[in-house]
């Protein structure tokens, strides 16, 4: 190992320590007794013997964290399925259709990005209450899908662009219909792209705060993000329980991300790595 590499590793480790400190501090707060942390000089490196997992137990008694997680999981799963299906269809169409109208429409989808979510949610709120969809997890699935699909569709388009058309043409020469060649040839090749879109929309849906905050009023449909934020004012003193809840609610997505990160990265940069 050269000196340059050691320095490089040192720098990388240093920056990772700084960047991941918030996660470390969450974990530490969750496992240390509040008494030790409520001090002007909290222990940066804990005494291992004082670690306990009481906070995790307590948080389930204080608030229905289990239900929050279930709700978030339902919304995320629903959004992922809807986004993947719609984006795959639209992405293929945008990639192969390549007509002017299609592209104009496609680009106009990006207008969504200009609208602050807090503004979009006003008419959505009124529309959903008109059809009595407010306070349902379905309304969250719809709202999240609406803002995710434009991006997901373009992601899929760039992925389909990287699949040579010749493959389909060959299949069609052999008498395959267009639809069939799409289903049997293109789709299997697009699996990494679909995977990337799935994780991407999963992360966005799980992290949604604005829609969950405004479209859901009762307690039955509270998701982790809204639940946790409402927790702050109420149990200011119980940071251990609060951070335990925070840790639980980031765990599913962080674990998925760590496992599937290469897939996500290759999918997101697919336009580049042809």
């Amino acid at each position: 190992m050269t000196r340059g590499m050691i320095i490089r590793y040192g720098l990388i480790v240093a920056i990772i320590v700084v960047l991941l400190f918030p996660v470390y501090w969450m974990a530490l707060t969750a496992v240390l007794p509040t008494r030790e942390l409520l001090s002007p000089s909290p222990p940066l490196i804990p005494d291992l013997s004082s670690i306990s997992f009481d906070s995790f137990q307590r948080v389930f008694e204080l608030r229905p964290v289990g239900r929050w997680m279930t709700n978030s999981a339902v919304v995320t799963a629903g959004t992922v399925v809807c986004s993947v299906v719609l984006a795959t269809m639209a992405g293929y169409s945008l990639s192969r259709l390549a007509s002017k109208i299609g592209l104009v429409v496609g680009y106009s989808l990006f207008a969504v990005r200009l609208i602050p979510t807090t503004l979009l949610v006003i008419p959505l709120f009124m529309m959903f209450s008109e059809v009595e969809l407010n306070n349902t997890l379905r309304s969250l699935v719809i709202a999240n899908t609406v803002v995710i699909v434009p991006f997901a569709a373009w992601l899929m388009k760039s992925f389909f662009d990287s699949i040579p058309v010749e493959l389909e043409e060959a299949a069609m020469v052999d008498g395959c219909s267009r639809l069939r060649s799409f289903l049997t040839i293109v789709l299997p090749l697009a699996r990494p792209g679909i995977g990337a879109v799935a994780i991407f929309s999963g992360i966005l849906a799980w992290g949604d705060f604005t829609f969950a905050r405004t479209l859901i009023q009762g307690d039955a449909g509270t998701t982790v993000t809204v639940g946790l934020v409402s927790f702050v004012g109420e149990y200011t003193a119980d940071w251990g329980a609060l951070m335990a809840a925070g840790l639980l609610s980031i765990a599913p997505m962080v674990v998925l991300f760590i496992l599937l990160e290469p897939l996500l990265i290759s999918g997101l940069t697919s336009g580049a790595v042809k």
């Binding site: 960047l19 949604d208 705060f209 993000t225 980031i250 991300f257």
Partner: peptide, 11 residues
Amino acid sequence: ILIPWPIPGAI
């Protein structure tokens, strides 16, 4: 390095 990405902003 990318870990903060999947963490919801609110959390």
